[in-house]
Design a protein around this nucleic acid. Sequence first.
DNA 1: ATAAAATACAACCGATGCGTTGTACATCAT
DNA 2: ATGATGTACAACGCATCGGTTGTATTTTAT
Lengths: 85, 85
Amino acid sequence: MYIISVVKNTFILPMEKEVLLKKLGARIREIRKEKGMSQAELANTIGKDQQSIQRLEAGNINPSFYYLYEISQGLKTELRELIKE
Amino acid sequence: MYIISVVKNTFILPMEKEVLLKKLGARIREIRKEKGMSQAELANTIGKDQQSIQRLEAGNINPSFYYLYEISQGLKTELRELIKE
DNA sequence: ATAAAATACAACCGATGCGTTGTACATCAT
DNA sequence: ATGATGTACAACGCATCGGTTGTATTTTAT
């Protein structure tokens, strides 16, 4: 008797990682525009640079919790607002 | 004329990183207990192991957005619920 | 008291976040 | 046309996340 197959992490998540990150980025961009800020402006207020914000909004990274917190502060909003849907 | 001091990131955040992560971990633990799950149980349902959940709940890591999403799914709750305060 | 279950902690290591530099391109005003 | 402003993309490097193994400590049940 041998183990012929080991399937790991069969838990199916309702949303793909890539899709989720795109949505997050789009939401952040939406809020930033509402506030009338440029990427560089947002970045500078929280000690980051424009390129980092660009990557985030493009959904090209999977940002850390604290990073998102900093973003929310830069946008003068609640962290929870970034996650609406 | 010389630059004698460069202060970077003078933006003062209302909450320290460490404190925020402790709170996040505590909140996750709270929800997990409400659901009557063990760390291992939560971990296994989303293809992780007990030790990873422990580090998260202890506030010893700054988890990624998608990681938190997986946790929320394992807890059968909304991602937003993990961030309540 | 003993065993089982749950939780905590430390170390290794590959993958990746994120700060940074450099640059391209598009839009707008002068 | 030129310059200023906003956005996009790629690469480098250090730090850290997170999967994993190993083990210790605590809690609960019998």
